[in-house]
Design a protein around this nucleic acid. Structure first.
Lengths: 201, 201
DNA sequence: GACTTAATTCTTACAATGTAAATTTATGCC
DNA sequence: GGCATAAATTTACATTGTAAGAATTAAGTC
């Protein structure tokens, strides 16, 4: 009988490959990283990764899933460090911005890509859902506490859009001094809070 | 002496090629369109386009420049159709949204791409500047008229970020009912106006 | 410990891409 | 008509993702 890979060995290889892919994508961008480079980074022959991933897209899915999970963890950590709902909202916004600007390539892979059949990768779907859920968790508390009125899902999407827009403009190189994502995001979020409280329901 | 292309002939070929590129990019996306396809679309051999454009990136620059100009024209048209500054602001916002959702591929080429040496294509730089200038033109009038207070450039960037974020989320497939770019953009813009007026300077 | 056998890995191969280099074609002056 | 030369085509090459085939290797049997 031949040697058979244990599940642990398979997982370990997949993880090492995702490590390398994450690093190389961040360094050179998704398009610029080749299957051959990934294989070389692990010291295996060019076709070996195909034993562990269906194709390049499956590797992308794994990297994205990990990014969504890291993102969720960063926001969850921020959530714990605020005592009032408003503090938590600000902490989450700041954490979102810090993640995006600190890991721009990961952020683009998460939110700026239309992966054809995303549904084929359940771990990716789950990680995406987790990240999304964390983003709005604190808003529910704010509505409950009466700090702000309205549909929490709608308000969450409004802040998300605003933050995302500022970030995307900066990452695409469309902003020049004295404007940057951090400043714009701060101004927009402040103004939105004002507007939400000024709004008669 | 050999036949020499007139400037008109060169311009005409370039224009036909940009026509084809625009259409094919919109249909299949930038990455999926090959130089060979572009050549075939004009009925010439694969290398002929290289007589008129340095490389694929130069074609992209030309397509982007044209998109920026179309965008500017759409916004300028909207500007003319409003009588009060507030009407004009709403019309421009609506025109921006309509352009983005009506020509999603063009929009992504304009605002979601970091073209390496953009500065090497003056027509692109100029078209981009024109589009940007149009976006903020009406805000200056609003500030002058005292409809709203603050730095017009900052306020312009705030609305831009918010609109862009909602659009990008939709184009990346990140929004699902009952949320879409149009609704989010409307809610955000309304709330921002409220917040700006509520804000003591 | 040698042998068998199938999972794993590596090597080879191919079609597609952007584009460089070589070749052919066509024009207008002598 | 022949020639110089711009334009266009043809040929060629390195690089990519990945399919197919060949080689390697390790576990169980004797």
């Amino acid at each position: 009988m031949p040697r058979v890979l244990t599940n642990e060995a398979v997982d370990e290889f997949r993880e090492r490959l995702v490590d390398a892919a994450e690093r190389l994508f961040a360094q050179h961008g998704l398009e610029a990283v080749t299957m051959r480079q990934l294989a070389a980074a692990l010291g295996v022959s060019p076709m070996t990764p195909y034993r562990y991933f269906a194709d390049k897209e499956a590797i992308l899915a794994a990297v994205r899933a990990r990014a969504f999970n890291r993102h969720a963890e960063a926001l969850e950590l921020a959530l714990e460090h605020g005592h009032t709902p408003l503090e938590r909202a600000n902490a989450v916004g700041r954490a979102y911005l810090d993640f995006a600007l600190g890991h721009p390539e990961a952020y683009k892979l998460m939110f700026d890509i239309k992966q054809p059949n995303e549904a084929a990768h359940p771990e990716l779907v789950e990680a995406g859902a987790r990240s999304r859920a964390t983003m709005t968790a604190h808003l529910l508390a704010m509505i409950d506490d009466g700090v702000v009125k309205g549909d929490p899902d709608l308000i969450g999407h409004m802040f998300w859009s605003a933050l995302h827009g500022a970030i995307q403009l900066q990452l695409a190189g469309m902003l020049s001094p004295p404007f940057d994502a951090k400043r714009l995001a701060g101004e927009i979020m402040r103004t939105l809070w004002l507007g939400l409280n000024a709004d008669p329901v």
